[in-house]
Design a protein around this nucleic acid. Sequence first.
DNA 1: CGGCGTTTTGAGAGAGCTCAACATCGGTGG
DNA 2: CCACCGATGTTGAGCTCTCTCAAAACGCCG
Lengths: 201, 201
Amino acid sequence: MAIKDWLPAAVRAAATERRLTAGEALFRLGDKTAGLCEIVAGRVRLARVDRDGHEIVLHVAGPGDTIAEASLFSPQYHCDAIASTDAVVRIYPKRAVLSAFDRDPKAALAFSATLARQVMGLRTRIEQRNIRSARERVRNYLALNAGADGRTVTLTGTLKDVAAELGLTHEALYRTLAALERVGEIRRAKHMITVARPRRV
Amino acid sequence: MAIKDWLPAAVRAAATERRLTAGEALFRLGDKTAGLCEIVAGRVRLARVDRDGHEIVLHVAGPGDTIAEASLFSPQYHCDAIASTDAVVRIYPKRAVLSAFDRDPKAALAFSATLARQVMGLRTRIEQRNIRSARERVRNYLALNAGADGRTVTLTGTLKDVAAELGLTHEALYRTLAALERVGEIRRAKHMITVARPRRV
DNA sequence: CGGCGTTTTGAGAGAGCTCAACATCGGTGG
DNA sequence: CCACCGATGTTGAGCTCTCTCAAAACGCCG
């Protein structure tokens, strides 16, 4: 769900861009909230620092992700945002966003819709993490990401990325895929995995 | 974030209640969407059935949770909702909710705010699941749920519930807590856990 | 008092992680 | 065009850690 699909053009035009070097803070806990933030390039992590000075990562956002949605409704940030790599972000001023929502209920609803969709997706991912077995987790992933035919999954990124999304080490993923291919449950091609025998348990 | 905190009273009044027996479907994939649903009692799972006839659980909701937020923006349900136990649910008709949002931007924004907060919480939980070690996961949980003093965590439910939330078996949680207590890192009282030595790594 | 669910501890096994070596691929520059 | 290099992909071996199965103490409620 890209920003441009729901944020009015007028608001998008009001955005400012900012460049961050690795380790630089986009904002800190307690700062006055500026607005919605879209990651254009690089990685930005949201984190809190506990009493021990230990950093607790809440989320890692990459290109296309938005962060600080909740900041629209809060005067201060509730955590730190630190660039993990050199990064470029685009900031949509809070006031512009909120007033657009106020004037245009459609836009507000569209925003709600994207959030509701995000909630769905995140809940699905959490449920996926409850699966212990690497094999089952991969099966789940394939079933959930299968295309229209219900059998073919097109890989957007690298297998390493998939492994991270699944919460597995890349080695474990490679092995599991190899094992599934060995028993004929899947077939693999470049950037594509096909489940060989649907309709089976 | 309880429903009554953001849903206008007029909409709440329009709600209907429904009683489900274990295994009964609240709705099925493809059904026309009725509205927002709040779980009053029992457990309801959201699931999809894949080509193999295998059920993929997307989410399990308990009392106080809302489900089908995204259904407000879709004509049909995208998954099944099945009662895992006998359950009672309250349904807020889609039309009433949407028209309330349309009339009252404040209500729409309040809805967005709860969703944004949910997204935050869910992302945090996902990040937590990336922690492999039971001990680290428990530390993370304690740090994240500490009260105002940053050292004391008050348990709302049973330890078994906490274990489920952490994605650990209850045995693993008991053992980990016992170990942490043994080395003096935490102290435990009835429904309360205190981190003994803050400001340490 | 009796029963049920939570809490606790024990022992064993399996599964994924870690460390390590190597193959493969794509891009870069000479 | 080819050598080089870094990142991705792949496989091996050992080890740690959690899960599983089991049994028992504990606490709460009827």
